[in-house]
Amino acid sequence: MKAVITVTGKDNVGIIAKVSNECFKFGANILDITQSVLQEYFAMIMIVDIKEIEVDFGHFVDSMSELGKQNNLSIQTMHEDIFNSMHRI
């Protein structure tokens, strides 16, 4: 079971560290990170394994979103099934 975390916003020091730390806190294992900075705009897609997370997935989604708000970023966490359904037959 995986989730996709997308992070967008103004570039800043320590974005990846903060998001990774939050994942670590809940026991979500990071599998892949794609990240780019276009001018001042930061965009990251992180794929994490949520099999072992210690909280309900909804709570994890809320915590990530809250972290985003605190740091002026938009952080969205979605279960991988929505992407698999839409793009794979």
Partner: peptide
């Protein structure tokens, strides 16, 4: 593994 373009398309 999920494709970045597919992810971005869905989010968009």
């Amino acid at each position: 593994m999920l494709n970045t373009n597919d992810i971005l398309e869905t989010i968009k």
